[in-house]
């Protein structure tokens, strides 16, 4: 596979390490009342769609960027690649 890195252009997927569902960015607040349940769902329960999937890849043998890749799990077609940091910031994650 080839991932079109937003900063570096197309790079072989062998340079990357896969983590999984991009929802792992949405880490719950530890002080919420039902934090235990939220953390359980956050870590373990996935949509696992047959179709478009937003997922995290780490450019370990490259620029060390975490990327959010939108990829079709039926065809492997990659629709979009974003810097995960930008996605996290857009989701309101900060300090």
């Amino acid at each position: 596979m080839i991932i079109d890195h937003p900063l570096l252009g197309p790079r072989d997927a062998a340079e990357f390490v896969y983590l999984g569902d991009a929802s792992l960015i949405d880490r719950p607040d530890w002080q919420d009342e039902d934090a235990a349940r939220q953390f359980h769902d956050y870590l373990h329960v996935r949509d696992n769609p047959a179709g478009e999937h937003r997922e995290l890849w780490f450019h370990e043998h490259g620029d060390r960027s975490w990327l959010v890749v939108t990829r079709n799990t039926l065809t492997h077609e990659i629709i979009r690649v974003e810097l995960a940091r930008d996605v996290a910031l857009s989701l309101g994650r900060g300090r």
Binding site: V17, L19, L24, I25, R27, L56, F58, E60, R64, S65, W66, L83, A84, R85, V87, A88, L89, R93, G94, R95
Partner: peptide, 19 residues
């Protein structure tokens, strides 16, 4: 060593990008 570094980069870029 490699895994810890990867996880710390994840925390830095994805969980707390404001730090």
């Amino acid at each position: 060593a490699v895994l810890v570094f990867r996880n710390m980069e994840f925390a830095r870029q994805c969980l707390w990008p404001g730090l």
